[in-house]
Design a protein around this nucleic acid. Structure first.
Lengths: 330, 330
DNA sequence: GACGCGACTGCAAGCGCTTGCACTAACGTG
DNA sequence: CACGTTAGTGCAAGCGCTTGCAGTCGCGTC
């Protein structure tokens, strides 16, 4: 394996100069730099991450922690992050929490392999937040506001209100919500906020209560929940699902029952899932890829010496009207 | 930051013993090990990846290279890999190639941050293969057979034949294929093989030629290609799409034209996409998650000292009949 | 012409671990 | 009982870089 001294010898300079020439830190004359680059290139030299990291304290890598990998939202955010970081020479170290959250945070993340950390949709309690802070690296959490961390937040209460208000504005009064089941709600406050937004919007219209059907944020779960909702006597004329995948499940369930969308039942989701347009799904888009890009940018800024902002401002969202919602039929 | 000497002092032993006790290499008495573990735990000590890696030459990380992150197939395979590796204490370093393949392979991957490498759906030419071999770490490529690398291969020729044979067995004779466009075909031989399987199966039935419509493996692309296929005079009675996403696009396109699936046109895909069942899509499942798990297992075996197998055998696939295919109507 | 000053460059001391080797002590064995 | 073994431990030399510090050199100034 060719090392820095091989390059130094080939270029006729010291290893210190090679290091400076290649990393761009410290003054090196243009001529020397050129010579070093040529030597490195021709020898196929690439710096050893371990040695460089040990000596400099910089790892040139950013950790990303996700709850799951194989869900559209997470892989899309991840793609946005990757885009933003690779361009700046950072590697990504990926931690998929699965059901070993504790182990991932206490062991893997703490090996000091990374210069910064991004977490997605993982609400951290005081203890976990403190433990993360102790890492001593910039951290950006895409999650609900948390005064202990730098967070990038979608105002999910407002999202819930917006979706519900859309249905109300169309004239619906019998509206049901498909939200998180216990297991899904455990790790995140997002579903609870969307639901509260739903309930607040209804309350303002004087609608005291509306049924909520729990599901697991998958198409299948959404379908099953919608089936129950649509079988209830006094069937709702509109359904607000807390994710597009569940909303799509709801559309499919409605179809199976021979109900027409939106004629017999209006359906709205949240996310901006790429499939939505194929189902004519009205939704509140939250620009997943953009969330990843913003997280990457925030992390890069902080690595560049910017002050860590506590609140990075809220993330945008937007009602996208397609065909799955309409006024209730007489 | 607490280091190994802090632990050594607390446990009353040398750093060498701490290292051995914590890593499990080399003899340490049970009592000493216990004392060290307690000390490490109470101090919150976690080994520095950089220092450990530099000293030992082991990084406890596996690199994974994917063409894209936000496509179902890749994120699903990745989830399988992650599952397999995390359980064994390995971190994952993720490289998303995008349009910087060269840079990723020549720079990032070569920083010796990883103990092994898994590539997904990236055919490597002789030069790239050689360059990867030179990394000196185990490599498993989920891709077409490549004598220069350890590959985990789906027999895509057979997949193409199987899908086509299914349509032929149902009695279809006017069959069209939705395959890769130039850009998509560039990085991978998979689409070409599926297409050849398609053509061979037809040829055996004496069907000399059948139209092929290029697309980009997305729902949208599949939909557009199917629209063209279904508009052709002498409309095909069956469509074989080289991916489930394109097949779903085809179903949607057919519906938009008022054609019934499978009555007016049969449609079959490849992948085993989770959405398939919602569209009643007949497909050739290739068990994406399992592919990732097998790649992880193969890599772990080799890291454990097993001989690198050149061909790791072929990956399973299976026809899943759902409602989107049926005999052609009179 | 002496001096101060920047711009470059090299020396060498680490960065925080792992591990070959040497050593000690405790056990069989013949 | 002397000796070979083996298990357990410590010493200290790196692993391959980065960087503070100390030169060296060429210039511009007074």
């Amino acid at each position: 394996m060719v090392g820095i001294d091989d390059v130094a010898r080939a270029a006729g300079v010291s290893t210190a100069t090679v290091s400076r020439a290649l990393s761009g830190r410290g003054p090196v004359s243009a001529a020397t730099r050129e010579r070093v680059m040529v030597a490195a290139e021709s020898l196929g030299y690439v710096v050893s991450a371990a040695a460089s990291s040990l000596a400099s304290g910089r790892a040139r890598a950013v950790g990303v922690v996700v709850p799951f990998l194989d869900r559209w939202f997470f892989s899309t955010v991840l793609a946005g992050i990757s885009d933003g970081l690779v361009r700046h020479g950072y590697d990504i170290t990926l931690y998929s929490v699965g059901d070993e959250r504790r182990r991932v945070f206490d062991d893997h993340v703490r090996r000091r392999r990374i210069d910064a950390l991004i977490t997605i949709a993982l609400e951290s309690d005081a203890e976990e937040s403190a433990s993360l802070r102790r890492l001593g690296v910039p951290i950006v959490a895409i999650a609900g506001p948390n005064p202990l961390l730098t967070t990038l937040t979608v105002d999910d209460l407002a999202v819930g209100r917006l979706a519900t208000a859309h249905l109300l504005a169309l004239g619906h009064r019998r509206v049901a919500h498909i939200g998180a089941d216990a297991a899904t709600a455990a790790g995140s406050t997002v579903p609870a906020l969307r639901r509260r937004g739903f309930e607040e919007a209804l309350a303002e219209e004087g609608i005291a209560e509306a049924p909520v059907y729990p599901a697991d944020f998958t198409i299948e779960g959404g379908s099953a929940a919608a089936a129950r909702a649509l079988d209830a006597d006094h069937r709702p004329t509109a359904l607000f699902a807390a994710s597009d995948e569940m909303a799509i499940g709801a559309i499919l369930a409605a179809r199976e029952k021979g109900l027409r969308v939106p004629d017999d039942v209006s359906i709205i989701g949240v996310d901006g899932h790429e499939l939505g347009r194929w189902f004519g799904l009205t939704t509140v888009d939250q620009f997943a890829r953009g969330q990843g890009e913003r997280a990457a940018a925030a992390v890069l800024a902080e690595l560049d010496g910017a002050e860590p902002a506590r609140g990075l401002g809220t993330l945008p969202f937007e009602l996208v009207e397609r065909g799955s919602t309409a006024p209730p039929s007489a």
